[in-house]
């Protein structure tokens, strides 16, 4: 879209005697509901969150309606808290696993559902959308049922195929819990990445592949030297988008491990939620930690808008 300061075309003649709003004013009136709502629900809270993070806000202050100035106290306490640093570390590990696995799976499944002559690919193409519709909290609860040590379905399946002798406590071990929660999250968010890859694949013509095949290139060589380079832009898009959204994972943690066992699966959004909304309701500290999270994601967002989005549109 090109930027123009004037309406694109000169106004065609308007029936005599009829008055209408100037385009500038019309634009303002038509945007008024959006601007008001976005100011109320997006712009103001972001600013207010920053303000709160520099004040002492707890249950007593909420009752009185007065928030004393705290300077950088909340941020100092935040970075002195080993639990916050652990939450950040866990978040980074979680994001790294999720994004790498999703990109690999998205390319593989994208290629798979792009096979027009394989009828099972058509079934996959329909079902791939399914996880997108599942409420994240229900997804978490279903997987905690799957993972259940006593009577979980995952253990039942593995027993049936004779793969395990004793039940495995998938989400209950501190060493494996963080990996266990990546799987449900990957399951739920995979459709988006697959659809982007699939859309990109449909834009790649068959001529290059046919020419390379005539020249004796193997399927792997064609993928490596034709498909993959052409997919690179969309892979970068998925990388940035999935990274920034995975940073805010909440529901699957809440449903499956609640941060446990111990503090093995505390992540950034869980930390903010627990600090702000569970006793002793340290809302100032919660706001500070949520702002740190917003800054990390915001940095990625700016990279996305400045470089990648411009180039696609």
């Amino acid at each position: 879209m090109a930027i123009r300061s004037e309406p694109a075309a000169a106004a065609p003649p308007v029936r005599a005697g009829r008055r209408e709003l100037a385009p500038g004013r019309l634009a303002l009136v038509m945007n008024l509901p959006t601007l008001l709502t976005m100011a109320l629900v997006l712009a103001y809270p972001i600013g207010y969150a920053a303000w709160l993070s520099f004040h002492r806000v707890g249950p007593a202050q909420l009752r009185r309606g007065e928030f004393p100035w705290a300077g950088f106290d909340n941020y100092v306490r935040l970075f002195d808290d080993p639990l916050f640093l652990l939450s950040l570390r866990n978040t980074f590990v979680f994001v790294a696993i999720v994004v790498v696995v999703e990109i690999v799976l998205a390319v593989a499944i994208g290629l798979l559902i792009n096979q027009q002559r394989v009828w099972t690919s058509r079934i996959t193409r329909v079902l791939i959308l399914l996880p997108y519709a599942i409420p994240p909290i229900a997804n978490g609860l279903i997987w905690s049922f799957l993972y259940s040590f006593q009577f979980g379905f995952l253990n039942r399946i593995l027993f049936t195929f004779g793969l395990i002798e004793e039940p495995v406590n998938w989400a209950g071990h501190p060493e494996t819990a963080l990996y266990a929660v990546t799987v449900p999250y990957i399951w739920r968010t995979l459709p988006f990445a697959v659809l982007l890859v699939h859309a990109a694949l449909q834009g790649i013509g068959t001529e290059l592949h046919e020419a390379a095949a005539v020249d004796g290139a193997t399927a792997w060589q064609r993928f490596r030297h034709i498909t993959l380079p052409l997919l690179l832009p969309i892979i970068v898009v998925i990388l940035v988008l999935r990274t920034s959204f995975a940073f805010t994972v909440f529901e699957e943690i809440r449903a499956i491990t609640q941060g446990g066992p111990g503090d093995a699966t505390w992540v950034a959004a869980w930390y903010s939620y627990k600090k702000a909304f569970e006793p002793p309701n340290d809302i100032g500290l919660g706001a500070a930690s949520a702002w740190v999270l917003a800054l990390i994601v915001g940095a990625l967002a700016i990279v996305y808008v400045k470089t990648i989005y411009r180039r696609i549109h």
Partner: peptide, 16 residues
């Protein structure tokens, strides 16, 4: 940019 704002960051000030 708004699409990237974490819900948890919005919810604390909205609650207050």
């Amino acid at each position: 940019l708004a699409r990237f704002v974490p819900v948890i960051t919005l919810m604390i000030p909205l609650y207050v």
